[in-house]
Computed example of a mutant assay.
Amino acid sequence: MLSALCLAAALTAVQTTTAAAAPALDPNTPISDDGRIGSQIQQIQQIDQIPTGRRLTTAGSAGTGNPADAKGVRPVTGTGPRVVAPDEFSTESIIAPDQRTQVTNTTTYPARANVYFTYRKPNGSTSWCTGWMYAANAVATAGHCVYSGGTGGAWNTNFTVYPGRNGSSSPYGSCGVSTAFSVTGWTQSASAEYDYAALKLTCTVGNTTGWYGLRWTTGSFNGTAVSSAGYPQDKASATQWFTSSTVSATYTRQLAYHLDTVGGQSGSAVYTSGCTTFCALAVHAYGYGDHNRGTRITEAAYNNFDNWKL
């Protein structure tokens, strides 16, 4: 009997040790709202035969500006759903003086590649964020705009994307979303360093609006001139506002800058010239009083965005 008990105890110890030794997922492991994770999503890249080398950029596109080139776009009637305050995890900052200017013509590029999108939060309320086209059928945004963050969090639902929204006007209609993506560094750990996401659209409106290219490097961006445009909560509903500044600090997975932002502008592109049109360097997400920060497009994030657009 004693030997049997010892054997059982030994087996339990081995099982416990094995379970404890299971490797943690890399924080950049992709995850989708339909339950796929890791290689289940990455297999898409093999199917589409996208080169997997160390590309540093993808090209942007100004689009045609012709709505007839977009497939699957829905006409918009009225002003859309009533929304409450945007989903913000940290106060975003105006670095006085406020240098934001309104984009009064959102049918020009790159303004038309910026999107206002609404969604239903897990508590049933409707909110919004900013995003940006980075392919004909894909939008990049902040992780906290698609998932509430951390263990026990939940996916937002009922996404509706309005490219180039300008108050009550939706010059390019709206698009639905087939899949929302983020990474486990956000969905499991709510780490600000992994606060990025994408929405796969049910349309190809990017052929009309154009899109931003992507750029990554391990080097510093300090002093790089950057711009951003989004949909702030302190201005007229669903109006787009532009700001520009320079990168003030470069971190491994974040960029700091003095772009003026408030709630609602989370998810906007932090971009510079290049990539044929403009290169997105980061996804705006946070404020720290005397500066704002975005999730840097690292090589891993770049590869995820590449997969998510297919």
Rank of each mutant, 00 (worst) to 15 (best):
L2H: 10
A4P: 00
L5Q: 11
L11A: 12
A13W: 08
V14L: 15
Q15Y: 12
P23R: 12
G38E: 10
S39N: 11
Q45C: 12
Q46H: 13
I47M: 13
I50W: 13
R54P: 12
T57Q: 14
G60F: 11
S61C: 09
G63L: 05
T64S: 15
N66T: 07
N66A: 10
A68H: 10
A68N: 13
D69C: 06
D69S: 11
G72A: 04
G72T: 03
G72M: 05
T77L: 14
T79P: 00
G80E: 10
P81S: 08
P81Y: 13
R82P: 01
R82S: 15
D87V: 14
D87Y: 14
E88V: 15
T91E: 15
S93M: 12
P97C: 08
P97V: 09
D98P: 07
Q102A: 11
Q102G: 04
V103Y: 07
T104C: 04
N105L: 04
N105H: 04
R112W: 09
R112Q: 11
T118R: 03
Y119L: 04
K121Q: 12
K121F: 07
K121C: 01
G131M: 06
G131W: 10
W132D: 02
M133W: 08
M133G: 02
M133V: 04
A136C: 00
A138I: 05
A138P: 03
A140W: 07
A142N: 05
C145W: 06
V146G: 00
Y147Q: 03
S148P: 03
G149K: 04
T151K: 12
T151Y: 13
G153E: 07
N156P: 00
N156H: 13
T157E: 04
T157Q: 09
T160C: 01
V161T: 02
S174N: 10
S174V: 05
G176N: 04
G176Y: 10
A180H: 05
F181K: 00
S182M: 02
S182D: 06
W186I: 01
T187P: 01
S189M: 10
S189R: 14
Y194I: 00
Y196D: 08
L201Q: 05
T204K: 03
V205Q: 06
V205G: 04
G206K: 06
G206V: 08
N207H: 13
T208F: 11
G210Q: 02
G210R: 00
G213A: 08
L214G: 02
W216P: 04
W216K: 00
T218R: 13
T218N: 15
G219T: 10
N222Y: 11
G223E: 09
A225N: 13
V226N: 01
A229D: 14
G230T: 06
G230Y: 11
Y231L: 07
P232W: 11
Q233S: 15
K235R: 15
A238T: 08
T239D: 08
Q240C: 03
Q240I: 06
W241R: 00
W241S: 01
F242Q: 06
F242I: 00
S244G: 03
S248I: 14
A256Q: 13
V262A: 04
A269Q: 07
G274V: 07
C275T: 05
A280Q: 11
L281F: 02
N292Q: 09
R293L: 12
T295Y: 10
Y302F: 15
N303C: 02
N304L: 09
N307V: 14
N307L: 11
